[in-house]
Design a protein around this nucleic acid. Sequence first.
DNA 1: AAATCCCGCCAATCG
DNA 2: CGATTGGCGGGATTT
Length: 878
Amino acid sequence: MGPLTTPKKGREVGSVDPWTPTSNLKMLISAASPEIRNREKELCMDNDGRDSLESTQEPENGEESEKMISRKEKSLGLLCHKFLARYPDYPNPALNNDICLDDVATELNVERRRIYDIMNVLESLHMVSRSAKNRYTWHGRTKLAETLAILKQVGEEHQYSQQMQQIRQRLVEKEFDFDGEEKENEVAVVDLENGEHGQKELFFVELPGVEFKAASVNSRKDKSLRVMSQKFVMLFLVSNPRVVSLDVAAKILIGEDQAADQDKNKFKTKVRRLYDIANVLRSLKLIEKVHVAEERGRKPAFEWVGPDDFPQVIDSENTSTACPPKKKGVLEPHASADNCAKNLFSSPGTKRSFTRHPSLIKLAKSIQDDRRKINSAPSSPVKMNSDFPNKMAQLAAICKIELDQESATGDEGLKPAAAEANTGYVLQLPTPTSVEPSHIPLQPPTQEQAVNTTANPIPHAMLAAQPSGSVAYIPAQCSPLIPVLLPQQRGSGPYAVYLNPSSLRSNPLARPQPTSLAVRSMTFEDKTGQSPNGQSAAKSHTAADASPSGVKRLRSELASEGSPSKAKRSDPTFKDTSPKLCEILQARLKARRVGQLTSRPSPRALHLDPEFVNTPGGAVANQTLEQSLELLLDREEKVANSDSEAGLTPVRAVPLTPRQLHAETLIPAGYLIPISQQSLISYKEVQSSGAESNKISPPNIYQTPTAGSRPAPAQEITPTNLRLQRPTNAASPQATQQAHRLNSPSPAILNFTLQNLGLISSSSPGSAFATPQTPERANTLTSPLPSPLTLQQRAMVFIKPLSPVHIQQTVSPHQVALIGVQQPLMATPKGSGVPQHSFFHTPVSLSPLAAVVNTAGQSSIKTVHIPQRKLDVTTDES
DNA sequence: AAATCCCGCCAATCG
DNA sequence: CGATTGGCGGGATTT
């Protein structure tokens, strides 16, 4: 009765009359041990589940009809899951994707308050937008990639990685009971830095399209949850091992008020919110709960498992961090990340009015349009028609669905691939002319670009062309004409072929004559395979621990950690050196930049705004330079972070960073190589991921993208989604494997691939190439029956036939490395011959090739070369 | 005991 | 002014 006491609900279990077929089950389950219960529950949800709770049953009848509502049944996460199940990931924009809070609340049978929680974080990701009172519009993941890209950028501008680093540092010191002195210093530093950039406070980041909520209102309400959520996400996007520990996040989120020990209360509150956010993010399969090891045991943390690589939003201007209230007045249509972000930061005390100028609203709209166009016409000077965006979007959506499913299932392994997939930049329609794969299409197109290219040929064609293909289709001669996505659920799941149109072509209409094609790998899984999430995850987990790979990793980590003292010191050192290093790098960078720019056929290839292209090159160069510089700095930090982070070793050897290496591995053109990839699958928590991660496939109907064009593909795709993992699977992993094997397109190829990878990895100097994948493969090779966590998912290696010339020109370490690898490819794994120098001295690769590899130069730069940087630092140090 | 995080009071804001 | 939103933190549940 206590006013403070949470009212208990009748937890009479048995009394309930089953309103749902599942309810019985539930009851039973709940009776079981909590653990089992959970798992069961999830499974249940996964499969037939979906109807169980959310089916709107249970009007309300008996209030005491409650069952053993183990607290978890009411968790925000579950609720969110249910919520998400109601809407398609990629809604048809044409339809009216309206969400009525009341309805939802009712249907889900929850208090409204809870819905708000969900909506808030979804809104922060632009998955929904408030359209009016009580009303939201569902966007699904349509804009997710874009949003993430922006958030990432903003996060970088905020030097969150730095901040995190410092906080960690502080924490560590604290633990060591170091004198407060140092702490003070640290704090001071922080202050300083903050000061420099102006005490920045983050505000809700908006997308041009998805913005201001209800017409007028744009209250300054942008408060915590939303913003906090964005910040939280940013943290992930900027930290190297994409792991963020709860407390660190909380501290950062608490605000720049690095006031000495924050009030415990504030901290507590923040953490509470964080959990809330984390729950929905988890439902979205963007993060996973993990733990980071620490002297004193483990700390709760979360790992980002969502898309990881985005086309960089080219920031035309305001590269600067502290952006004072921008003069939106001039705001050109070309929205940069900054521009897109509504209120990024503001000075501490200065509360600028958050209220958007009415005029701005219009602007925003136009911005959106323009932005689309721009994005869509990366490589062509000619603007696309406004109607393209839609089609493109839809197309993209389709692909996304595909990819997403693939990747969503838990792979996430193939960095680039997945990333691209997630971002939906997948289809690449090559030119229907040449069939000769021999030259290189540079630069993987971005979604829009792709679409663009495709635009003419038109979706239909593509889709139609898509045979539900089998590997057979993909053969070397795979002409550029062949569509990109080959969904094939039979046997082995879809393959995706990435055909790059040459981005060099000066004119969109001018069919590039792709002399070669690039095959982008996509992940796929065989039907038989269960959801990688559940089992594979589990398996991988264990494997990680036990397998040699795990050991190896551990060792390396230890090594890197070296002596604690050293580690400690590294930080200061870093600070000192960093500047110089930066200079050097900068110079180098500059040089490259210039070269690159000049040599580059078209700046547009970099997704530069047409307008900018027109502007004096110098300006552009500078801009970019600046950015890159920042990036450099960032990287520096990151590196440092990761280094020192050794202390916080993620329990499950987490760093999957260098995925791109593999992905980008150059291989003789024409091969489609399926590779095992589940090792890459993020180490999901056995419990958490399992069912819930497998989205309950929403009605296909929704997914049917391109209006009327062709539902078939979508459906075909769907199956992937449906693979339900029955508990039984667990029992017979082997069977699964075998099945898999049988299904696999070509064991030979597979082996081949594995070998290659193995080679690559082995040849690499630990840090750089120590990818999680490697070990796996090694295993596979070794024994016919790989560890339980074998391949349920395979991915294809990116095949990027590159003309020798290019390769040579390319001096990027990356390339070099690859090349090196390539040589020994068939030979011995010993490949120690890899030119390490290059590794050490080319922190940031601007080689065209490198740029090519990723959708956006910038991003590529960021992601791809981190490892080298690491080395670099060390080297220079010595 | 610590980690999670549900619940719902109640203050801003909205309409 | 009533309805919406959504901070916030007590304290129940889980781990």
